[in-house]
Amino acid sequence: MNASATRGGVTTYNGELALLMSLTPAIAVAVRVIDALWMAAGVVAVLLLSRACMSLIVRAGNPGTQKDASPPQGRFFSALIVSSVLTASFEILLMSADPEASASLGIYAPLIAVNFLVLSMTRAVDSGTSMGRELADALGRGIGFAACLILIAILREVLGAGTMTLFPVGQFSGVIAVPGLIDDPARALGLAGGGLICLGYLAALVRLARKRRLASGTAGESSKDGPR
């Protein structure tokens, strides 16, 4: 059940407007793959932990009942407090682990606290659903978010700079030069406008793929029925 919830979160959530809304501030840092990886790690970690914390708070507030009695504004501010405290913890951890990455993320690391995905998932905790299912759902949506963000970063860095920046290991500096693109990249993709255009086309491609899948599913069903 939990595995299917995770899978459902990864595949079905990608095409929805909510994911695009949560991606829009994050694509500002998706100019280098390494920054997108850090951002994705931060969002997934904060998302999972805030959902777990909120789930515990809701259960503690409504013991033995499946109906949530908390007012919407109280739920909203609780979600804000939980996500912002966890985001501040992530900032401190990142600062001590990799100060360069912390500087690269800049003001976008604190903004994880008000990321649409994090806030909407934290608010949407249901006391009637098991904690495992809540976390599996959050994990699925987090993976969907991370996959989209990393894909956009790869496209923008490879086409816009002709490189791909990963973690440096030993002698490896972390920067891979792409032959043919490094000398003459499409630098406009690395700018803010390039991020918006990339996201727009990605959303259109996802929508097109979903439409084709639905159409082929309908055609398959009708051919199974056969002529009557």
């Binding site: 918006l196 727009g200 086309y201």
Partner: peptide
């Protein structure tokens, strides 16, 4: 406009072009 681009995708692409203009 092509159906796949209608709505949010086209708004994002337009905003991207506007961002270039603002440069």
């Amino acid at each position: 406009t092509p159906e796949a681009l209608r709505g949010f995708p086209l708004h994002l692409i337009s905003a991207g072009l506007l961002a270039y203009a603002f440069m």
